[in-house]
Amino acid sequence: MMPPESWIVFFEWCEATALGTAVRNSMYAFPLIEATHLVAMCVMGGALIMVDLRLLGVGMKDQEAGKLARLVRPWLLGAIVVMLSTGVLLFLSEAIKCFYNTSFWVKMITLPMALTFTFLVRDRQILNDVPSRMRGRMLGSTSLVLWFVVAAAGRWIGYS
C-alpha cells in the first residue's frame, strides 16, 4: 500500500515547515506531544467505548444510547481536536518517515472512515432515534473495530 511517489514533494515540504523543524530539533517536544496525544486518546476512547458498549447491549443498559452519545459529545469533540492538533505536530516532525510507513497509510485511510462513521452514521442514527437491537449491535461493533484499527496502526507507526 503505497501512494504515488510524486506525493513525496508535499511530505518534504511538511517536514521542512517551521513547526515540524521545531518539534524535530527539540529533545522534549516529541515525547511530550506524544504523551498528550495518548491522554487525549483515552478521553476519546472512553467517550466512544461507553456508547458502543451500550449499543452492543452491554455496559450502561439503564440509559438510552442516544442520551449517552449526546451527553458525551462535547468531550468526544474536545478530545478529537486535541488528537488532531497533536497528531499533525507529530506528523510534521517526521513526515518523510511517515510517507514510507505502511501503518501511517493504514491510519490515514481508516481515520476518515472512523470519523465519518461516528458522526454521519452512528450518531446520526442514535441521536434522534432508538435503533433496533440488531442495528445497535452493528453500529457499536463497526465503531469499535474501525477505531481499534486506527489506534493500533497509530502505535505501529513507531515500530518501523
Partner: peptide, 21 residues
C-alpha cells in the same frame, strides 16, 4: 514484543478512558 506493547497502549482507551468518563 510490539504486539504486547500495542495491546498495552490501545487498552488504555478502555481502562483509562472509561475511568475518566
Amino acid at each position: 514484543w510490539p504486539l504486547v506493547e500495542s495491546t498495552h497502549v490501545v487498552t488504555l482507551a478502555l481502562f483509562v478512558g472509561t475511568a475518566i468518563m
